[in-house]
Design a protein around this nucleic acid. Structure first.
Length: 433
RNA sequence: GUGAGUGUAGCUCAACUGGUCAGAGCACCGGACUGUGGCUCCGGUUGUUGGGGGUUCGAGUCCCCUCACUCACCCCA
C-alpha cells in the first residue's frame, strides 16, 4: 500500500490503546484540579497574533520563530496558541471575571503548537495542562501552587527521588533593573570567554546567560550575582513568604539562582520541577511556572496578582507509573449474528445491555461463526451471545461463557431474550477458578 | 536553524568483507474441528529492501542526492 498522506511532522496521532491512557490521565488531571478548587477554562486554539506578542514577549524564541501564524480570510493575523497563559488571561479580562470575583482559580488542558525540531519530549503539537490563580498577592499561594504540582507527580507515582523542585525569585521590574546592570557588568568582565550564543545574549537578554548549558559558561557565571540578592524589600518579603509556605507544605526544593525562565512575563517567583532519572532525556522539565503580575499591565494597564504553571502531558506520560492510569477492565460481550437472523428485537436487547454498562460488539459480518469466535477471543470478550438460524427459529439466545475451558458443562446455555441481560450481569460475578 | 544516527513484510528483527539473501518469529487468513474461540498441528498471504541516480558482470550491502524518523544542540512544558 502506498501511503499518500502522512501526518505533519511533529504532530502525532494518539491511537488505541494509548488513547485510553490519555483519557484516564486527563480525567485524573481534572480531578486533581477540581479537588483543589480550580475550574476548567477552555479557550480557542486560535488567537490573534498580537496576544502572544504582547503576552509572551517580542524577543522570545517562541514569538520570533516558533509560532504558527497566518492571515485569516479577512487579513487578520492569527496564531495557533503556543501556550495557555496568555489566552486564559485574555479570556478572564474579556469576560470581566475579576470584577465579579477578585480571586479566581482556573485550569486548562489541551493542545499547543510550536514550530520546533521534534525530539524526545518535544513536539510541534503537544499537550499542556496548566493552573492559574488570580488575585492573591502573598507568597502563600505560590507555595500552594507548587504543592499542587508536586502532589500531582506524587499522585501519578513519580518517585520522590526522581524529581527535583527548583525555586527562584526574579524580583519585580525594579529589582531586575539593578540586578541586570550588575549582571551585565559582571558578564562583560569576561565576555570574550563566553560561547557565541552567550556573547549575543549579553546584549539581548543577559539573564539567559545564566541558563546556558555550556559547561565553560556555567563556570564563568559561577560567582555571578544572584537575582535574590537584588530583591527590593517587598520582593524579598514575598520570597520569604514563599519559602515559609513551602516549609508548611513540606516540599523539598532547592533555590536555583539560574532559574530565569524564557517568557518575558514572569516576575518574582519562578519554579520548575525537573525529572532527574533520565527518562526524559534533555527535555527534563515536566512542570514549570511562576508569578506574572505584570502581564496584566500589557492587557489592562496595571498589575494584577497572578501566578500559574504549565505541565507537558507527553512528558508526564514518559515518567508516570502507567499502572495507575490503566483502563479498568470492563465487561465485554460479543453479539454474533448475521443479517438473515438479526432483527429489531435484537437491537433492543443490545441497547439494554449497553445501558447496563456492558460493552457490546455486534458482529454481523458474512463470515464463519468460527472467525467471529476468534475475534471475540481476541477482543477478550467475556461472553459470546449467538443469534443464528437456530436461535431465530427457537426464539432464544445461546450464551457462551468464554472464560471457561472447552469441556466445562456450564459453558454454554440457552436463554430467553428477556432474561439475557440479568443473567449476564449475574454470571459476570462468578469467578471460575 | 545546526549536528549525529537510523530507514528490510502490519510489528520485532536476520542476511560475514557487494555474489540464490529477499528470510525468521509474531500477527493475519484458511484447514484439521459438520454455525463454536483459546492449546496443538498443517497450509497460505504480505515486501517495488524509504525514493531517485551512480559504481559494478552483479548492491539491501559501496558512493551521491532526496525524503522520513530518532537523538542531541538551540529553546522550552
Amino acid at each position: 500500500m502506498d501511503i499518500r498522506f502522512k501526518s505533519i511532522k511533529g504532530m502525532n496521532d494518539i491511537l488505541p490503546p494509548e488513547s485510553n491512557i490519555w483519557i484516564n490521565l486527563e480525567h485524573l488531571l481534572r480531578e486533581h484540579f477540581f479537588m483543589a478548587g480550580f475550574r476548567e477554562i477552555r479557550t480557542p486554539i486560535l488567537e490573534y497574533f498580537e496576544l502572544f506578542v504582547r503576552g509572551i514577549g517580542e524577543g522570545t524564541d517562541i514569538v520570533e520563530k516558533e509560532m504558527y501564524s497566518f492571515k485569516d480570510k479577512d487579513g487578520e493575523m492569527i496564531t495557533l496558541r503556543p501556550e495557555g497563559t496568555a489566552p486564559v488571561v485574555r479570556a478572564i479580562i474579556e469576560h470581566n471575571f475579576l470584577k465579579h470575583d477578585g480571586i479566581c482559580r482556573f485550569f486548562y488542558l489541551g493542545p499547543m503548537f510550536r514550530y520546533e525540531r521534534p525530539q524526545k519530549g518535544r513536539l510541534r503539537q503537544f499537550h499542556q495542562f496548566g493552573a492559574e490563580v488570580f488575585g492573591i498577592q502573598d507568597g502563600s499561594i505560590d507555595g500552594e501552587l507548587i504543592f499542587l504540582g508536586v502532589s500531582l507527580l506524587n499522585k501519578l507515582g513519580v518517585q520522590e527521588r526522581d524529581f527535583i523542585t527548583k525555586v527562584n525569585s526574579l524580583g519585580c521590574i525594579e529589582c531586575r533593573k539593578g540586578f541586570r546592570e550588575s549582571l551585565v557588568v559582571f558578564l562583560n568582565k569576561s565576555k570574550d570567554s563566553f560561547c557565541d550564543d552567550c556573547k549575543r545574549r549579553i546584549l539581548t537578554n543577559p539573564l539567559r546567560v545564566l541558563d546556558c548549558k555550556n559547561d565553560s559558561c556555567r563556570a564563568l557565571t559561577q560567582d555571578a550575582p544572584c537575582t535574590v540578592d537584588y530583591l527590593c524589600e517587598g520582593c524579598s518579603k514575598h520570597f520569604d513568604e514563599v519559602k515559609r509556605a513551602l516549609k508548611c507544605f513540606e516540599i523539598k526544593y532547592e533555590i536555583d539562582s539560574r532559574l530565569v525562565r524564557g517568557l518575558d512575563y514572569y516576575s518574582r517567583t519562578t519554579f520548575e520541577i525537573q525529572i532527574t532519572n533520565n527518562l526524559l532525556g534533555s527535555q527534563n522539565t515536566v512542570i514549570a511556572g511562576g508569578r506574572y503580575n505584570s502581564l496584566f499591565k500589557d492587557f489592562v494597564g496595571e498589575d494584577y496578582p497572578a501566578i500559574g504553571f504549565a505541565g507537558g502531558i507527553e512528558r508526564l506520560l514518559e515518567v508516570i507509573d502507567k499502572k495507575l492510569i490503566e483502563p479498568k477492565e470492563k465487561l465485554r460481550v460479543s453479539f454474533m449474528s448475521d443479517l438473515a437472523s438479526f432483527d429489531v428485537r435484537d437491537v433492543l436487547v443490545v441497547q439494554k445491555l449497553r445501558e447496563a454498562g456492558i460493552e457490546v460488539e455486534v458482529d454481523l459480518a458474512t463470515k464463519s461463526y468460527k472467525s467471529k469466535f476468534k475475534r471475540a477471543d481476541r477482543n477478550q470478550s467475556t461472553f459470546a451471545i449467538i443469534k443464528g438460524e437456530d436461535e431465530k427459529k427457537g426464539g432464544y439466545y445461546t450464551v457462551k461463557d468464554l472464560r471457561l475451558s472447552i469441556n466445562s458443562e456450564d459453558k454454554q446455555f440457552r436463554i430467553k431474550p428477556e432474561e439475557l441481560c440479568n443473567e449476564i450481569l449475574r454470571r459476570k460475578e462468578i469467578e471460575w477458578s
